[in-house]
Design a protein around this nucleic acid. Structure first.
Length: 156
DNA sequence: CGCCTTTGACCAGCGC
DNA sequence: GCGCTGGTCAAAGGCG
């Protein structure tokens, strides 16, 4: 599973292309912790969309728990996990039939950092394009993070 | 009136 | 086989 606490590759679950993204700006993404494209090495959760779903986790320095990335998120769960003293919040994209999920928890080490984990790809345009508040968006559709990580920032 | 947040319970997977 | 942990669902309430 994705160990959010450790930014090292403690997760050897899938074909993971780990990379580090450092974006300077107004509290933008500090570090892309982990990206993974779950093939199917084994049977993961029996629930819905897990095939081909992308998992992207990154750490952001922010006082806000949830960041406005342009999409509409609806909270559907909150849980105290053992791996962290901080609660973990679960969000789901509420735009149409988009089934992208987002998991948010504060960093164990620095509570000023927020660990955000996206699962899935948005299959719709960004509803709030034009006004990103805290954070640049997670690019919808098929975005090559590893490419951008080594060349330039995908955010602007 | 509609949408979102909150909270507890339930379910499934994994490890021992 | 049992227990533990994480993830999701569903109902109720609140707010815009």
């Amino acid at each position: 599973m994705l160990e959010d606490g450790s930014e090292e590759d403690s997760c050897s679950q899938t074909t993971a292309a780990a990379s580090a993204v450092t974006v300077t700006g107004t509290g933008h993404i500090d570090q892309l912790i982990h990206t993974a494209t779950p093939t199917h090495d084994g049977v993961r959760r029996s629930k819905e969309s897990d095939d081909g779903a992308r998992v992207v986790a990154f750490r952001t320095k922010s006082e806000l728990d949830v960041m406005d990335d342009g999409f509409k998120w609806r909270k559907y769960g909150k849980k105290m996990v053992k791996s962290s003293p901080n609660p973990r919040n679960y969000y789901r994209c509420s735009s149409g039939d988009c089934q992208v999920k987002k998991r948010i928890e504060r960093d164990i080490e620095d509570s000023s950092y927020v660990i955000t984990t996206y699962t899935g790809i948005h299959n719709h345009p960004i509803p709030g394009v034009g006004y990103y508040n805290q954070m640049p968006l997670m690019v919808p559709y098929d975005y090559d993070w590893t490419l951008q990580a080594s060349s330039q920032s995908p955010f602007s």
